[in-house]
C-alpha cells in the first residue's frame, strides 16, 4: 500500500502508523456527557467501504494525515493533512 503524504510524496505503508477512525468527534474537554465520551473513545463506524482514518507518517515527517481508504479494496482515494494550516 502506498500513501501519498502531502508533505513527502508517495511512501510505503511501512513508514506510517495507523491512528484509526477519523469520524469520531471528541466532546468538549469539560463535558461530563458520559455517553458522548464513550462513543468517542470506544465506538467505531468500522465501515466496509470508504473509511475516513488517520495515519501518522511516523517514519517520515511525523505529520498526521487524513486518508480516505476503501477497507474492502484498500484503494486510497484521498490524503490530506490532518492539520490543514501546515502545508
Amino acid at each position: 500500500m502506498l500513501i501519498s503524504c502531502p508533505y513527502c510524496g508517495p511512501r510505503d505503508v511501512s513508514e506510517f502508523t495507523y491512528q484509526g477512525d477519523a469520524t469520531r468527534t471528541r466532546p468538549d474537554p469539560a463535558s461530563a456527557d458520559a455517553a458522548a465520551w464513550h462513543e468517542y473513545v470506544y465506538e467505531r463506524s468500522n465501515e466496509a467501504g470508504p473509511h475516513r482514518e488517520f495515519w501518522q507518517h511516523a517514519g517520515g515527517c511525523r505529520a498526521h494525515v487524513v486518508v480516505i481508504r476503501n477497507t474492502v479494496t484498500h484503494e486510497i482515494s484521498s490524503v490530506a493533512p490532518a492539520r490543514g494550516d501546515r502545508i
Binding site: 510505503d12 505503508v13 482514518e53
Partner: peptide, 13 residues
Amino acid sequence: DGYNSYAQRGNLP
C-alpha cells in the same frame, strides 16, 4: 497488518 480492513489479504511489510 494494523489498519481497518475487510479484504482477506494483507501487505508485504
